[in-house]
Design a protein around this nucleic acid. Structure first.
Lengths: 198, 198, 198, 198
DNA sequence: GATGAATGAGCCTTCATTCAT
DNA sequence: GATGAATGAAGGCTCATTCAT
């Protein structure tokens, strides 16, 4: 195996970890699996990540950063009115680059563990304070003073999360586009003035 | 240890399994943990359930049966018009008897594994064909011929699932009642004619 | 392998540990060696001693207790005058039951590690406060007020320790009796009034 | 890293090995520790010493040569009568340049392993044939034909060894000077004609 | 010479499973 | 039925050694 720089190897190993998590789930993922998947020796994994725990938490951090960057970019590229921003925020969750079966499955594996691992909880979606604040802000702007923005924001957020899980676990799958349209439909139901997609 | 019947012991061990899954997560649950939690000896677990795999899949089956019975009972006790039936179906998901922190956490643990375990997938919520069919039927009745009942049913279903996960993983929790109200608000958004709760 | 009580197995494993330490030294002693030497599976070692560290420190504690009991018994069985007590204390160090090649070698292995392991230091001979106090007390009684009892006691003590090490490491060995006589000769040199052995 | 000659690098690595042995003991000394301690890269150790085993045995050889040179020089510088030679031989063992805590601890680490490693045994003190022969010769000269020179020489030798070990392992330490005086006191006890120090 | 990534053997440890009592 | 000792497979981790750069 040729030598790569520190960062390249780490990225390679993290991608391999995502693949293995998707195939075998959290509980049965071993360092040998990850090494095999990357075509490297198992000793190298501990050389670059001091332990299995660290490899996994850095993999989650990697996914988490990727997720945040995705919706930030989407907001930056959208028109600045609340309706367009909210639509962009929701659609961002279903971009094909991010919503690969592997990444969704890896997220799912982490979610299952997060409930018993405070360190994971922090990085799992619902606890991204910035994301939640943004969503609530947009809902508040669209609802006016009489709406319950926190609740509507939560409904929209958990719908997206539920759809992600659904995409992974369900036996009879539907397309990513259909998932996105479902999320947009939910938004449209709360804000009838916005014209729904489809 | 006093002697209990076969079924009582099995139920005792399954409840202990739920507790341990909630505390330690799927990956780190061991048979010793379960035995300790039940106050029983190590070897007894394998005596009653032939293997760890069997203990876990029967625990999931137990939770699954409990879940199905819960919504069936709720439907049976509700008025027969579609609006009342749909409301009852959604509210059933948030009954305090079922939505204990332990049970929610145990479900979460199984969901994380389900993506890589076909045997688990079948029993995880979104794949309960009967439940989905009922939900779609009610949505169709309320939406009329022009609505997309499959999509609306899906939105309502994943919202409930997302709320369950949210109740488990989020750092800053809200009440079960608030979760229920969020689900009802989502339904109300899709069917404005139905008067919302709160 | 038939089943033995907890204490019997622990003693058996500790004896096996002593044997292996004597043959392979501290650094190259493995749990598999110990298990093989005892004719048991390696898993059993961790079942009875939670870790390798614990097995080793309990082995040292076992040797330490054995050592203390040996000289206490010797003192109790000797005449009560200081000369007889001192002679008994020194001779006790060379009783064949205690000074087997295996035990001496195991002690030696622990000594080598003790310098970098405070936990071991406490149990290695020179730090047995009771033993040192007794030795100094007897030397003081025999020397009278003008002698340097602390120094003489130290000389006698380190001679015994040095002889133990010598018995283990030297290429051209001499007998246990000769070692004992050397220690007694050293004592006799400090207390000419006592008639030397040989 | 500046470039040093082959021999300088080797000496640097050997001194680092002594330091690490003193801190971590034999069993837990790794090549990485040694490289870190010397401020050199990992791979360099194996470049200069073909293996860990070789590094360690050359470190022992280095200490051994140093030890022999020390007492040879001491004998050469002392008066030629047996009493002065013997005194010089004993005092040489406690010269502060040689008896640093690090060197004593490193010796101790090797002693612990020597019992199971014939290669080490040869270089550990008691087996230095030349030293033992010299000591016995001096004792014989001082004792006359009726003394047991082998035994007295042994007593003196093991006392010095025991004091070295004591200096390393004991919890409540005393000074190097006190150790030297203890050794001299032992010699004086065997040869009352020689006036003791202190 | 020097570096540090890469390899793989070996070890400790965990734990599901078996089984004698 | 019930217990807990015993087994052994499997995985994480360490670390000596190699080698491309």
């Amino acid at each position: 195996m040729g030598k790569l720089s520190r960062e390249e190897r780490r990225a390679q190993l993290i991608e391999a970890t995502i693949k293995v998590l998707a195939i075998k789930g959290y509980a049965r993922t071993t360092l040998s699996d990850v090494a095999d998947c990357a075509g490297l020796s198992h000793g190298l994994v501990n050389f670059h990540f001091q332990s299995k725990d660290l490899l996994l938490s850095e993999t989650l951090a990697y996914l988490s950063v990727e997720y945040v960057q995705n919706w930030r970019t989407a907001l930056a590229n959208a028109a600045k009115d609340p309706a367009a921003q909210l639509t962009a925020l929701i659609r961002a969750d279903f971009r094909p680059e991010l919503c690969t079966p592997q990444r969704l499955a890896a997220w799912c594996a982490f979610w299952g563990e997060a409930q018993s691992r405070p360190l994971y909880q922090e990085k799992c979606g619902s606890n991204n304070a910035e994301y939640v604040a943004k969503l609530e802000e947009l809902c508040a702007a669209l609802l006016g003073p009489n709406g319950n923005a926190v609740r509507v924001a939560r409904a929209i957020r958990v719908t997206a999360e539920g759809l992600w899980m659904d995409l992974v676990t369900q036996v009879d799958p539907y397309s990513l586009v259909e998932a996105e349209n479902t999320a947009i439909a939910c938004m449209a139901a709360f804000f009838p003035a916005l014209s729904p997609a489809d």
